[in-house]
Design a binder for these strands. Structure first.
Length: 703
DNA sequence: TGAGATTGC
């Protein structure tokens, strides 16, 4: 790199290499297309397996699992731990007697890909000896599957039906360093199970970073009736990875505008460095679109940037655009992929040799003073920065350009780790799960890391308001509370759903409403060039009662469209097929769950044109999210619970309406550029006190 | 009046 802005490089950094490492195998699986029956490829796979670093530690691992109840495996990326550890356990007999070895992942795709890979290595059909089970797709057999990949959320929910996880002999919790709320909750449950199952159960915690001692200490117990020969119950095992060096470059002085710096760095890499794609980490979609448009202008006005191709990558991007990101570029073309942190862990893009890191991320922060989520742009942690850098060295030595100084990086501005979710998100799902499993004292519960008390009390308060927790005993209410723990929904939406079959007889519409809100709401997209056409189309679906009924209308129209026509239909109406497809899957799952809960003869009930019962049903779950039009202003609202002034989100049908309803309930409130409410439904204030007298008699004085 | 990070049951 010729630029003088950067200096020095750091000693090489642990990062991915693997020809067969976990992350990139989906590509080898699909692209190379070698099949399990092919002798040459079988030998190739076998040979690859033996070359993995994990293979050298096979005996050591099996010895540790024999001797200790909990083993923390520290394996660098590319070590093969996620594919090999379950196979070693299987070969050593841990699946004997019909027991199952389960390996959990934080993300669905990872679970599916790993199962594909391991089935291939073991030369079995997927869904037989090796399978996986994630939301919406169970490719496993209750009789035959011995190695099962799952998401940690799925396994956690299995505890409701089988609290001792009695089918399983070993649970491998992979990627534990992610510290998602589900992972932390699952680890706490596994510790309880480990103590109760007296020696016939093992937990393996697999983590990439240096949190090993925390995990080991957590699983260590002094109960010497549990451990085999010694008094230890937990140990640590390290597996080295395969490492390509990554050169890290820092700015010599902090930059004023990171977007300008990002595009400049990309063009300089393009002009002065060898082949390889560039991955640029930016905090959000807006920043990405802005950087790409700047870069496109530069490409248009310059002769030597012809072969640079800017692309965008973020979670909500269309399948079409996503394909461009993953497909290899044409010969002689270099991709410059501007991405959010999806590319940090969730997806792997092959061919990346250069990384440009803005050092920023957008993250949701829950403000316990106002009970409002804020989407804030924050400095990443040092472990995130290392993870991002590692993305440049997956296939050969790489280079990473950090758009901040080395001094800044080493300072406390960049924290060592991300704050784990248990300390910063709503704890409602965890509280429901623990209560459902009979944990009565949540404050004194044995967590891996105790959550802040404000978050715990906020969750308990909300659940009590909704009637899921008995405020006298503090236990889950027998029917509502337990059902809410089972449903894959926020408790507010869960209450809407259950009330639709219990009281309001509008299940058909309510399932649609809840599925749409659970899938993220707003299915309408408004492309820059075709604003008026898109808004015109949206008007056809609009219902004046509000966004939620508009979503229901759209969802029902989608379901009535024949499956093979749906993509086309969505494109023609400026609707997100991804979102509507997701809500249709949720819809099917919720119908099935209601039937299993004994409401099978109520799930077809429909309110038809009687929108009032549907609106009341929505309000019955969202009553605490109520707002009143500010009469002095006529376009902003005040939250009834705390008087906070909020704005209508521009995606709402009420945003541009001349006459706005006096009272509304909403599905979400979040502070971005302003405090916005979205997923809005008009209500009659009399319904609120009718539906939730306990809530509104107490709060009356505030309004 | 003017807009969005990400994952999961």
């Amino acid at each position: 790199m010729s630029t003088s802005k950067y200096k020095g490089s750091e000693p090489s950094l642990g990062c991915d290499m693997g020809q067969v490492d976990e992350g990139s195998f989906i590509r080898s699986y699909y692209a190379d297309g070698f099949t399990a029956g092919d002798t040459a490829s079988k030998m190739f796979l076998h040979e690859q397996r033996r070359r993995l670093p994990a293979f050298k530690h096979r005996m050591e691992l099996l010895y540790a699992v024999e001797k200790y109840l909990a083993v923390v495996v520290v394996g660098e990326p590319g070590s093969g731990k996620s594919t090999q550890v379950p196979q070693f356990l299987y070969e050593a007999g841990w699946a004997a007697g019909g027991k199952v070895i389960v390996c959990t992942q934080p993300r669905r795709v990872a679970a599916a890909m790993l199962a594909h890979r391991v089935a291939e290595e073991m030369d079995v059909a997927l869904g037989t000896t090796v399978g996986y089970s994630v939301r919406f797709s169970d490719v496993s057999s209750a009789e035959n599957t011995r190695i099962k990949y799952m998401t940690d959320g799925t396994l956690m929910h299995e505890c409701l039906a089988d609290p001792m996880l009695s089918k399983y002999s070993v649970v491998v919790v992979d990627e534990a360093q992610d510290r998602s709320l589900d992972t932390d909750t699952l680890l706490a449950l596994l510790k309880k199970i480990m103590k109760k199952r007296k020696g016939d159960f093992r937990v393996i915690i697999s983590s990439a970073s240096l949190d090993a001692e925390r995990f080991r200490g957590y699983f260590e117990t002094n109960d010497n009736t549990l451990a085999q020969p010694e008094h230890n119950t937990a140990t640590i095992l390290s597996i080295s990875g395969r490492i390509f060096p990554v050169d890290i470059h820092y700015l010599t002085a902090s930059c004023e505008n990171y977007l300008v710096a990002a595009t400049e760095t990309a063009t300089k890499i393009h002009i002065s460095e060898g082949p390889g794609d560039i991955l640029i980490f930016l905090p959000g979609k807006n920043e990405i679109e802005q950087a790409i448009s700047t870069l496109n202008d530069q490409i248009d006005s310059s002769n030597n940037l012809d072969s640079l191709l800017p692309l965008a990558m973020y979670a909500g991007i269309s399948a079409e655009k996503q394909k461009l990101v993953f497909d290899p570029p044409e010969r002689g073309i270099r991709k410059a992929i501007f991405s959010t942190n999806v590319a940090e862990t969730a997806v792997t893009i092959d061919g990346v040799v250069y990384v440009v890191d803005s050092g920023l991320v957008k993250r949701r922060i829950f403000d316990t003073d106002t009970n409002i989520d804020r989407l804030a742009t924050l400095t990443i942690s040092k472990s995130s920065a290392k993870q991002r850098a590692g993305r440049s060295g997956r296939t050969r030595p790489g280079k990473t350009y950090r758009l901040y100084t080395r001094e800044a990086y080493l300072s406390s501005l960049f924290p060592e780790h991300e704050i784990p979710e248990i300390c910063r998100v709503s704890l409602v799902p965890m509280v429901l799960m623990l209560k459902a499993l009979g944990v009565s004292n949540l404050v004194r519960f044995d967590y891996l890391q105790p959550p802040p008390p404000e978050l715990l009390s906020q969750a308990l308060e909300l659940l009590a308001e909704l009637g899921a927790i008995d405020s006298g005993t503090g236990e889950l209410t027998p029917k509502l509370g337990l059902h809410l723990a089972e449903l894959p929904l926020s408790p507010e939406l869960g209450v809407c759903l259950l009330n639709s079959v219990r009281t309001f007889d509008c299940a058909k519409e309510a399932i649609s409403a809840v599925s749409m809100l659970a899938a993220g709401g707003d299915p309408f997209f408004v492309p820059g060039g075709q604003r008026s056409e898109a808004l015109e189309d949206k008007r056809d679906f609009m219902v004046q009662e509000g966004d939620v009924l508009t979503f229901v209308n759209t969802h029902l129209a989608y379901l009535e469209t024949p499956a093979r026509m749906r993509v086309k239909w969505c494109n023609a109406h400026f609707l997100s097929h991804r979102m509507l497809d997701q809500s249709a899957r949720i819809h099917r799952q919720l119908e099935a769950m209601l039937a299993r809960m004994g409401y099978h003869n109520r799930i077809r009930s429909s309110c038809g044109r009687d929108y009032k019962s549907l609106q009341k049903c929505i309000a019955s779950g969202l009553f605490a999210n109520a707002a009143r039009l500010d009469p002095s202003d006529g376009r902003r609202y005040r939250l009834i619970k705390n008087g906070l002034v909020v704005d209508i989100h521009p995606s709402s049908i009420f945003f541009a309406a001349d006459c706005k309803p006096n009272y509304v309930v909403f599905a979400q409130v979040m502070e971005t550029t302003k405090v916005y409410i979205r997923g809005i439904s008009a209500v009659d204030p009399a319904w609120l006190s009718e539906i939730a007298p306990h809530y509104y008699s107490a709060k009356q004085s505030n309004t």
